Amino acid sequence: MNDTVMTIIGIFAVIIAVVLLLAAIAPKGYNIQRSIIINKPRQLVFDYVKYLRNMDNYSKWVMMDPNKRMTYIGTDGTEGYSAAWDSDIKQAGKGNQTKEAIVDGERIDIRVVFIKPFSGVAGTYIATQEVTADTTTVKWAFTSKIPFPVNAMLLFINMEKMLGNDMEESLNNLKRVLEKY
Rank of each mutant, 00 (worst) to 15 (best):
R53D: 15
M55P: 03
M55D: 07
M55C: 05
N57C: 08
N57I: 06
N57Y: 10
S59T: 12
S59W: 12
K60V: 15
W61C: 10
V62Q: 06
M64W: 09
M64R: 11
D65I: 10
P66N: 11
N67T: 13
K68M: 14
T75H: 07
T78K: 03
E79I: 09
E79A: 05
G80W: 01
G80L: 02
G80R: 02
G80N: 01
Y81H: 11
Y81S: 07
Y81V: 07
S82K: 12
A84P: 00
D86W: 02
S87K: 01
I89L: 10
I89W: 00
K90H: 02
Q91I: 05
Q91P: 00
Q91T: 07
A92T: 07
G93E: 05
G93P: 03
G93K: 03
K94H: 09
K94I: 01
G95A: 08
G95R: 07
Q97M: 13
T98H: 00
T98G: 00
K99Y: 05
K99T: 14
E100K: 12
E100F: 01
E100D: 04
A101W: 04
A101V: 10
I102E: 11
I102M: 13
V103M: 06
D104F: 07
D104M: 11
D104V: 12
G105H: 13
G105F: 13
E106A: 07
R107D: 12
I110A: 11
R111L: 15
V112R: 02
V113E: 11
P117Q: 11
F118Y: 02
F118K: 01
S119I: 08
S119P: 08
S119L: 05
G120L: 10
V121N: 14
A122C: 04
G123D: 12
G123R: 07
Y125N: 13
I126C: 05
I126A: 06
I126P: 02
A127M: 07
A133F: 08
A133E: 14
T136G: 04
T136L: 03
W140D: 09
A141K: 08
T143E: 11
S144H: 10
K145C: 00
K145M: 06
P147C: 06
F148L: 06
F148E: 08
P149A: 09
P149M: 09
N151R: 03
A152V: 09
L154Q: 02
L155N: 15
F156C: 09
F156R: 06
I157L: 11
I157P: 14
I157K: 13
N158P: 04
N158L: 08
N158T: 10
M159K: 10
M159R: 08
E160P: 00
M162W: 00
L163E: 01
L163M: 12
L163N: 04
